[in-house]
Write a protein that binds this DNA or RNA. Structure first.
Lengths: 340, 340
DNA sequence: GTCATATGTGACAACGTTGTCAATTTGCAT
DNA sequence: ATGCAAATTGACAACGTTGTCACATATGAC
């Protein structure tokens, strides 16, 4: 029987329901001896509080939602892991909610989710976390939320967040390529609906500027964080009259496409072409050559976001926090081959 | 206010609580006119039933759990997607529960999970789904469950399941390699705690036997479904006096390791070496060359498992169902180079 | 028109927990 | 001992829903 209730415990320990409740919730004002007796009864009956009843009675709830719309399994799994770690530590449940970020009634959908499942708040992953309209609607519904976003610094926009400095990280990668000696560096954009895309581009642009490397429009192509875009983009770049000696893909998947296109063109990475990605997904370690990329600490970021949300729910004051990615140099980058 | 309750609806529609409840739950015995009035009130107040209260009152519950311990993000995301699709359709919630499959008190952990969160049942992914001891413990706790397992046929072991015929699929891959002309085919095992591993091996073995290709122990190495095992295993195989002309990795990750090792050894896949994987993960499409592999339809399988579980909860009779993977031929396999 | 039967509706309790508030016990200074 | 504040405990209601059962109304057969 896993069906022991607080009533059974109370009877066994010869105390009132309320006293058991107090013990469970670590409220003060319970004599040591009483608490021991209750604990023993809990142990013996293998009692576990029923979350439905608990959240029904107390206005409080014991679960948060994780909202995402992102096709990248590595990213999502990492976010889930991080959020779960925080939830388990704080005794919360986690409700995952993949959804369509372009849905017209997304705010209502999320409110219903939160209401029906009695969620105490939501962690929003990109790109939902970056749609201000959505945020305002959710705020109007009084739904606590914490965002994971891309920003070069604390946005101070009133919506709590954990922010990742993609710009800085893209700057670091670009600077590294320049220091290797590259001057024609291709850049393949990520998806337009993600704020990380322009951020990464700005980092690239800034590095070129700071190092006095001329920017060339023909080396910069749009895309959508996909392998196919990487493949097509690279093919186009490599067909230029004066092709780049290095290509920076806005994420690892794009870079994977670049690697494939390079091989298809008979080029030897990194000697004929340097390739850099962004994200440090397992792919970047498992490709050949392994990818130079930027490590994101996604799991930590998500854990922090969930922790922040729970703190906010508990009424604590929340401070935004930034995470800086870290350059990871692997085998896909090398100095350019001297021109003949 | 997302805080309308059934009481508000009742007042607005001038009916009793119970009648509203009847409308919500599609019970019969409500006059059309009354129902319309209730529906209108629900609409106006934007009422949504509270799942906590509902599952507290009715013994029934409206959520199931998805239990897994699998490091492969592609696999897990696919399983989640499938299970979620079924849950959404049936009006259920899904609680994900990654865990340590080797934990000693796993059964208790899962019972607590089910009890605390009022889960109606569990979908078990490998390898948990294959530990009979665990299954028996859970059954003793009266927890409905459906397993996703590897089996060459319906196991008829009393525990409902959706089964995947890995043996057959591995047979198909091996047979394909043999038909290309390979006679020395390396095999890299997956993890021992997954039943899919011996199943895949048996398929390999059977194909060799059927086609009269001699099995050679030196070509068969153990491993654990990891890139590193693939890399190390391939390096060892390629260092043999008479190396294989094809290597069959038990999953795509292993095959990725094989690809990397081949490249490190200066071999050209598929001309110097054919490589086959298993799983049809996105990696298999994005590697270069893309991998010949076996498509698993993981998402469908998981959806079916969840649907089966819900049917079981509703008291329906459940029939196990098998899924056969499908051979996917891509660029990593070719006839062996004629020996000099 | 009467009765039996089906259909629709509502009052009330219950699910397992916590909040409120009052009752009881304890500890300590007198 | 006595008084008084503080600590500890318990009785009871409440959260939002559904199950049970009884009542009210409509339907049909005689």
């Amino acid at each position: 029987m896993g069906t022991a209730t607080i009533r059974d415990v109370a009877k066994q320990a010869r105390v009132s329901l309320k006293t058991v409740s107090r013990v469970i919730n670590h409220e003060g004002s319970v004599r040591e001896e009483t608490r021991d007796r209750v604990m023993r009864a809990i142990e013996q009956l293998d009692y576990r509080p029923d979350l439905s009843a608990r959240s029904l009675r107390s206005a409080k709830s014991y679960a948060i939602g994780l909202v995402y719309d992102n096709p990248n399994p590595y990213y999502i799994i990492a976010v889930q892991q991080g959020a779960l770690a925080a939830c388990r530590e704080m005794g919360f449940g986690l409700q995952i909610h993949p959804c369509d970020s372009s849905g017209p009634r997304l705010a209502e959908e999320l409110r219903d989710l939160a209401h029906r499942s009695r969620l105490a708040g939501l962690v929003l992953a990109p790109p939902m976390s970056e749609r201000m309209g959505l945020l305002r609607e959710l705020a109007a519904f009084n739904i606590p939320l914490v965002r994971i976003i891309s920003a070069a610094g604390d946005p101070h926009d009133g919506f709590p967040c954990v922010f990742v400095d993609d710009r800085d990280a893209a700057y670091a990668i670009t600077a590294y390529l320049i220091q290797l000696g590259h001057v024609r560096i291709g850049f393949l954009w990520g998806g337009k609906q993600h704020r990380s895309s322009p951020e990464r581009y700005k980092g690239y642009e800034k590095a070129l500027e700071d190092y006095g490397v001329p920017r060339s429009d023909e080396l910069i192509l749009e895309g959508d964080y996909s392998f196919d875009d990487g493949f097509r983009g690279a093919r186009r770049l490599l067909g230029l009259a004066e092709p780049p000696t290095a290509i920076f893909g806005s994420n690892d998947e794009i870079a994977a496409g670049v690697l494939a296109a390079a091989r298809a063109a008979g080029l030897h990475v990194p000697y004929d072409l340097s390739v850099a990605g962004f994200e440090d997904s397992p792919f970047s370690r498992h490709s050949w050559p392994s990818l130079t990329t930027s490590r994101q600490r996604t799991e930590e970021i998500a854990e922090h976001a969930a922790r922040l949300l729970i703190a906010q729910i508990h009424g604590g004051d929340v401070e935004n926090e930034g995470f800086s990615p870290e350059l990871v140099v692997r085998g896909s980058t090398a100095p350019p081959r001297p021109r003949p």
